[in-house]
Amino acid sequence: MTERKATTVWSGDVARGSGEVSLDTSGAARFTVSFPSRAQEANGQTSPEELIAAAHSSCYSMQFSALLGANGTPPESIETSAVVSFGKKGDGFAILGIALTARATVPGIDGDKFAEIAETAKKVCPVSAALTGTEITLDATLA
Rank of each mutant, 00 (worst) to 15 (best):
A121R: 06
A39E: 10
I52D: 08
Q40W: 08
R30T: 05
I78A: 03
E20M: 07
F31V: 10
D91G: 07
G133H: 12
T141D: 13
A99E: 15
S26Q: 09
S47I: 01
S77W: 10
T141P: 00
D112C: 00
A70P: 03
F93E: 13
K122S: 05
L138S: 08
A94L: 07
S58Y: 00
K88M: 09
G87L: 10
A143C: 07
R38M: 01
L23P: 03
I95Q: 03
D91R: 13
A66L: 12
F64M: 07
E76R: 13
D91L: 07
K88P: 03
G92F: 11
P74Q: 14
Q40L: 13
R16N: 15
G19T: 00
S47K: 07
A28Y: 11
R30F: 01
A140I: 00
D91Y: 06
G133C: 07
G19H: 04
D91M: 05
G44W: 00
A104N: 08
T141N: 11
A104F: 01
P48N: 08
D110M: 03
W10G: 11
L23F: 15
E20H: 06
E20Y: 02
T32S: 14
K5R: 15
C125T: 06
K5E: 15
L100W: 13
L138K: 13
S58W: 00
A42Q: 13
D110K: 00
P36M: 09
K122N: 04
T80F: 14
A94Y: 09
E79P: 00
P126D: 05
A6V: 02
I52P: 08
A102R: 10
I98M: 09
S58I: 00
T101Y: 11
H56V: 05
S18L: 04
T32M: 13
V127R: 15
K123M: 11
G108N: 12
A94Q: 07
G12P: 05
V127K: 14
L142N: 10
L142S: 09
T46V: 03
L51P: 06
S128R: 07
I117R: 06
D24F: 00
T80E: 06
A53D: 14
P107G: 03
E3W: 01
Y60R: 09
E20F: 01
S47C: 05
A115C: 02
E50Q: 14
Q63D: 12
S61R: 13
L67M: 11
R30K: 13
V33W: 15
P107M: 10
Q40I: 06
P126R: 03
S58G: 10
S22P: 02
G111I: 04
P75F: 02
T2A: 08
S22Q: 12
Y60M: 05
L96K: 14
I95D: 08
F93H: 13
G97Y: 04
A6R: 03
A82D: 10
E49V: 00
G19A: 04
A54P: 01
V14W: 08
Q40P: 02
P107F: 10
P48T: 02
A130W: 01
Q63G: 09
T120R: 15
L100P: 02
D91T: 09
V83L: 15
